[in-house]
Design a binder for these strands. Structure first.
Length: 371
DNA sequence: TCTGGGGTCCTAGGACCC
DNA sequence: TCTGGGGTCCTAGGACCC
């Protein structure tokens, strides 16, 4: 059986901020901002006050009036993420990045000589954790199991700096089965209440269910989720970095607006940002989508697919505005944005691609900016 | 001063073609 | 003159995750 390790950077953004400003150490710190923003990540001290990611800033201040709010520096987080995972890769050559702050590693060979001695394995993993901490000043927690799902549940089990083994059915059933169903990766805030309504409140209850109600609540996801709850699932750590499929930029306005021209200007700005990003990455698109969220938090998306692939800001803006004109009805808008889908490398496109002259010139260069 | 921003995957239905 | 079946593409939205 393969051994899969999941590594999760604990309160990653907050850690980065504390590392570069040690006076924040031991204090309730949150990364987040904007007039109508939410907490992106917060320190464990802030969590003691009940603050958590996704919480509106106004609520965070209510829970913890002294919270130190820091606007995010995502370039820096991305840079440190790369440094961290480069360090991981030196120890585990086969890793699969799952997000900016977590990855899976194939640890089968790493433990090959001691795979029957959990104590020795634990010590070896603890050494890795400390080595990574010394090297990057970043704390991580780790989970070890036979599938990616098991490893993921393990790294979440104890934070920060936790190490959790889920290698035997006993470990799995004593540690994971008692957890609330909402703690299961893959069960979100829409599905958890449905399962609770049919009497399934823990992961163990899902694992052993024979309930028709549960089958109905989960629909086509029933089989694999019950499998996961029983420790089944994929153990394939895929090392190739996957090509991104979409790129988006949206903005929550400081105040709701019905101003047609203002909304158009925001959309153009979002379209330009998206075009800049895909050009930087050497990608082209043929589907443009706009998103509008109204004052009731009702969100609509509309998209259009066209013949020719493009990376032109003008073309993307043109389509975004065309869609907007066709369906905006004057309701107060709190968020608008543009995304592009069907992203591909130009070389993968058989049909002729329309690149503007400027953008074609910028293609090999550093700056994708035109006009 | 309720509810960010950036993603992924999936589903269902309609249009269209043979 | 009453209506198949299969396949693909496109669209809109749901759910989830960090």
């Amino acid at each position: 059986m393969r051994l899969v390790l999941h590594i999760d950077l604990n309160a990653f953004f907050a850690q980065v901020e504390i590392n570069r400003n040690p006076s924040l150490k031991g204090k309730p710190v949150a990364v987040g901002g904007g007039v109508r923003g939410v907490v992106s990540t917060c320190s464990y001290e802030a969590r003691h006050f009940g603050v958590h990611s996704g919480m509106p800033l106004s609520d965070a201040y209510k829970h913890c009036p002294d919270i130190i709010m820091i606007p995010g520096d995502y370039h820096e987080y991305s840079r440190q993420s790369h440094l961290f995972f480069d360090a991981v890769r030196e120890i585990f050559p086969r890793i699969q990045k799952a997000s900016i702050d977590e990855c899976y590693a194939d640890a089968t060979e790493f433990f090959q000589d001691i795979s029957d001695d959990e104590e020795a394995m634990y010590e070896r993993l603890f050494d890795v954790q400390m080595k990574l901490l010394r090297r990057t000043s970043l704390k991580c927690s780790m989970g070890l199991g036979h599938t990616k799902f098991m490893a993921k549940m393990g790294s979440d089990y104890k934070k920060p700096l936790g190490i959790t083994f889920l290698l035997t059915p006993q470990e799995w059933q004593t540690k994971i089965w008692p957890l609330a169903i909402g703690k299961m990766y893959g069960i979100g805030e829409m599905t958890a209440p449905k399962l609770e309504a049919v009497g399934i409140t823990t992961i163990g209850e899902l694992a052993t269910t024979a309930s028709e109600g549960a089958r109905k609540a989960l629909g086509s996801n029933f089989d694999y989720l019950v499998g996961w709850a029983n420790g089944l699932g994929s153990d394939v750590v895929s090392t190739e970095s996957s090509q991104r499929k979409s790129c988006s930029n949206d903005v929550t306005l400081n105040q709701d607006t019905t101003d047609y021209d203002e909304l158009r200007q925001w959309l153009v700005q979002c379209a330009e940002d998206v075009a800049r990003q895909i050009r930087r990455e050497g990608l082209v698109t043929r589907t443009v989508c706009i998103k509008l969220r109204d004052n009731n938090f009702y969100t609509e998306t509309k998209r259009e697919t066209f013949e020719e692939y493009t990376d032109s800001a003008e073309t993307i803006s043109f389509h975004a505005l065309k869609i907007f004109d066709a369906f905006y009805r004057g309701q107060p808008i709190r968020l608008c944005g543009v995304s592009v889908e069907d992203l591909v490398k130009p070389s993968a496109v058989k049909k002729n691609i329309q690149l503007t002259l400027n953008e074609a010139l910028a293609d090999g260069g550093d700056s994708g900016e035109t006009k």
